[in-house]
Design a protein around this nucleic acid. Structure first.
Lengths: 207, 207
DNA sequence: TTCTATCTCACGCAATATGGGGGAAAAGAT
DNA sequence: ATCTTTTCCCCCATATTGCGTGAGATAGAA
């Protein structure tokens, strides 16, 4: 069984070295090369084609998100793991959208790092507890929604870009009823257009 | 330190019993009661207020998704874990939306079950490898999008319910240019309205 | 170099959608 | 008995939409 090829993109030399030591000490992975920035890694990515790239988010030059986008574009089979201290949800989601398959925090210990890499090769998605919870919560619908269930249904259709007429057809109600619901939604959410309503719905997880 | 109160909702008697044994054998959790269906559990939920509910998806009467919705409504602090054989993404996402905080598969072993419960109490979100990967992939943007980057920007704004005018203002282009982009998007996606474009965008993960 | 894709902008047109205002009736919950 | 929810109706002025057609500039690919 072959060892999986790993690259590390990390600007802090000490971290780069310790990750390298840890990974090279494992029986399933080896570090083929480390890079202090995204540009130098991307330049070689089509030739190196690593199985896994561990990417820091705070990088000189292009940031980690952008680096992952380019890695996935040039070498789609390379699985990217974000390694960072940041745990704010915006950054997490941007990273995942860019194509990251996992997300571990920098102070992870030896075992956590190796098991994350193993998780990746098994087709999993390693995430720290907080990250996993963040991702899950992103799915949860706000239980304190001010909207009635019918209004929520209507709001969902608004978020799908449906017109008054389309909404009324899908819910088997008259166009005027759809309009009524929408008016009430606007009042409750304190907005006065579809796009504002969608904004609120997304931000407050109303749908 | 108090043991956390767990309830089990599972129609198969053997599984119910073996989960109960496993959990009662742990030092941090105890099973206060088990239920063969959702209705009987929900009837008592406001009084029992368990810390954790393990819920099967295939239940006689109301299904697990609906059961979770009602549990979270009546006892929001109860953390729900879905326990099932199903692993199709639609069901996973419905469960998460309904308020589940974790998702484990039925053939999980002793350790996996206990560590899932511990993960939950730590504020994490236990998921099997496949589930985690599924959730992560849900974030990934299709790299084979037929749209140009500008068109993708426009499509995002369409999905936010923005009008031609609003889009042109946000992108600092003329209204006519926005219209041009939208026309091209429609041709490429083979649709002819905003709502259809949003449908495609969501289904094909174009945004 | 030629061709293609992309991004930008323009005008006209008919049909539809939108947001605001008003009102009302029935069912159910609290 | 009041409030909420759900259903439905009218009027109105303005904005939006989708379609057709056309075109200039730039940049990259064949």
């Amino acid at each position: 069984m072959f060892k999986k090829k790993v690259i590390i993109i990390e600007d802090q030399e000490d971290l780069r070295d310790s990750f390298e030591l840890i990974i090279n000490g494992s029986s399933s992975f080896f570090v083929s090369k480390t890079y202090p920035d995204g540009e130098s890694a991307i330049k070689e990515i089509t030739k190196s084609k690593p199985d896994i790239a561990m990417v820091d988010l705070e990088l000189p030059g292009i940031n980690g998100i952008e680096a992952i986008s380019q890695i996935k574009e040039k070498s789609p089979k390379t699985e990217c793991v974000i390694v960072t201290v940041y745990e704010d949800s915006e950054l997490v989601f941007k990273g995942l959208k860019a194509g990251a398959s996992g997300y571990i925090i920098k102070n992870a210990n030896y075992l956590e790092i190796i098991s994350a890499l193993e998780e990746i090769t098994k087709g999993g998605a390693p995430m720290s507890s907080q990250i996993a919870r963040m991702v899950i919560q992103n799915f949860h619908v706000n239980p304190n929604s001010p909207l009635s269930s019918r209004e929520t249904e209507v709001l969902k259709l608004i978020a799908e870009g449906k017109s008054y007429t389309q909404i009324s057809e899908e819910l088997f109600i008259s166009k005027e009823t759809a309009r009524s619901h929408i008016k009430n939604i606007y009042v409750k959410l304190n907005v006065n257009s579809k796009s504002e309503a969608i904004d609120r719905a997304r931000k407050d997880h109303l749908i």
